[in-house]
Amino acid sequence: MLNCNEVTHLASDHLDKSLNWKESFSLRMHIAMCKHCKRFIHHLRLTRLCVHGMNNNLASPDDVKHVLDNLPDTNKP
């Protein structure tokens, strides 16, 4: 049986489905009974969803210009 500290360490592997059958089963058993660990995993999942929603930062115009300006002349678009 996993304790809470161990569950915390396995939480990301649980979200990424990287746990083996036995670990996965133990973890599910634990969170079915432990509201704190259940919350920990819920919050970790929310955190991951948040950063996925931040996938819209473009490079600065200066950086882009730097890359394009430094293409060798023969390759310049």
Binding site: H36, H43, L49, H52, M54
Partner: peptide, 20 residues
């Protein structure tokens, strides 16, 4: 014994959209 001494706090803002 591996049990929580300081468990995760509740979050008031509970959806990714609201957080962002």
């Amino acid at each position: 014994d591996g049990s929580w001494s300081s468990p995760p706090p509740l979050w008031d803002i509970e959806s990714p959209e609201k957080i962002l």
